[in-house]
């Protein structure tokens, strides 16, 4: 994998990631840990949709959100789309953050996970700092190590947009129109294959 001069040290990779996130019209934030994320999210909304896989991975998160006075919607198995259709804010965890493009790689095999990122208006993507990779090849390594499984992963770079009418940029089409990327600076995510 190629690595550029600026990508050699961790802090400059984070700077590049931040620049990419902001260039894609998302908001960049750093928080020390999940507790700080909870406080941040709860300050802005009463109800939050959670990807089922995140709820399963971080059971403490549910408790903390509820304690902060935030209602939680987790899409149900039978009709996941309907269950989150009216929830404005959603919270997901990214597998990787890619400095080169300011993208967050979100793996969402199940429909329940996908409807959360598809149907909300404001999407909060949380990535532990140690999941930051310099280049797109980092995402390629991650995908190759798993042979494409579990089955659906997206590099997400900014809010949904279109320029189909006279090339005029309009934010927010079918997907979210507001994206917030939070890097967890003090927490270590579960180890993941393919990260450098």
């Amino acid at each position: 994998m190629t690595s550029t001069a600026t990508g050699a040290s961790g802090s400059s990779v984070r700077d590049r990631f931040r620049a990419g996130v902001e260039a894609a019209s998302s908001t960049y934030l750093e928080q020390p840990d999940w507790a700080a994320v909870v406080a941040h999210v709860a300050a802005g909304t009463d109800v939050v949709a959670l990807a089922p896989s995140l709820a399963a991975d971080e059971p403490d998160l549910l408790v903390a959100l509820e304690a902060a006075g935030c209602g939680i919607v987790i899409p149900d198995q039978d009709d996941p789309a309907a269950s989150v259709a009216d929830v404005a804010v959603a919270l997901v965890q990214g597998e990787l953050a890619i400095a080169e493009t300011g993208s967050v790689l979100v793996s969402e095999h199940r429909l329940g996970d996908r409807v959360v990122t598809m149907l909300c208006r404001r999407l909060v993507q949380v990535v532990p700092a140690d999941r930051l990779v310099d280049r797109l090849e980092g995402a390629a390594d991650w995908l190759a190590a798993r042979g494409g499984q579990p089955g659906f992963a997206s590099l997400m770079t900014g809010p949904s947009r279109t320029a189909d009418i006279e090339r005029s940029l309009t934010i927010g089409v079918q997907g979210p129109d507001e994206v917030e990327v939070i890097v967890l600076t003090a927490t270590t995510g579960a180890p993941t294959e393919g990260t450098a």
Binding site: G20, A23, A24, E100, T101, S103, H109, R110, L111, R114, L136, L143, G147, G148, Q149, G151, F152, A153, S154, L155, M156, T157, G158, P159, S160, R161, A163, G175
Partner: peptide
């Protein structure tokens, strides 16, 4: 479109459950 990357670059491997 002169974008470094599009908003979504999706990698789809097989169907989702169900």
């Amino acid at each position: 479109t002169a974008q470094p990357i599009t908003v979504y670059t999706n990698f789809v491997t097989g169907p989702r459950p169900g």
